[in-house]
Amino acid sequence: MGRNAAAVLASIVGLVMVLTAFARPLEFLGTAVVDWFNVLAAIAFVLGGANLLKMNLLKISARDAGWGYSAVTVSVFLITIGVGLLKVGAHPDPLHPDVALSGDKEAVGGAFWWLYEYAMSPITSTLFALLAFYVASAAFRAFRAKNTAAILLLGTAFVVLLGRVYVGVLLTSWIPADNAWVSWLRLENLSGIIMGVFNNAGTRAMMIGIAIGIAATSLKILVGLDRSYLGSSD
């Protein structure tokens, strides 16, 4: 019963969204549905937070391997959420200098700013930057011209890697830029051709394929044939 009701609701909402795309007078219905979606998206944050707490607290209480990391995660999560909920502001507030921590909550010097600037920002940037090191190591060990496909991939990688930086310009600067017959051979132009023609064609083919797949799946959901999104009935 519950699953049927959910499937019917999903069908109605889906049909409303399809109709509003073509019928302007029904736009208000689409706006209402999008409102519900935004409310659900906001609730997902609460569920996500609760789930994070549950998983990590279970790990801490069971003293699983790496429970210390979970303790750090829970501590920082609670500190950040506390700072956000209490709207701890910067001090002093120019308008109310006598009231402690009453300034703009995101202003320089505030607790939230401090967490963002000195914890989140450097940690996420560092993690992202580490990719350069691992990619270099992987390129040395795994990027081998074992067959024709790998040779093509290697050649393409060389052209794009060099064509996107000034070394590409330097290496092929002897090719006349004003001669249309040969100027495309300059690495910076060749890189553009690879990105704009070959890559573009492949990406478009994938995107069109994905779009057709989404349309087919959506149709199955609309008519109630696909209910996998509701999860298991157990």
Partner: peptide, 24 residues
């Protein structure tokens, strides 16, 4: 940031070339 990008890319190309010399 294009200067570190240039040397980073050049190193990558160099590493791939050396790796393939070893492979062959």
């Amino acid at each position: 940031r294009m200067a570190p990008q240039l040397f980073g890319h050049s190193l990558m190309v160099g590493l791939i070339l050396v790796g393939n010399v070893i492979f062959f």
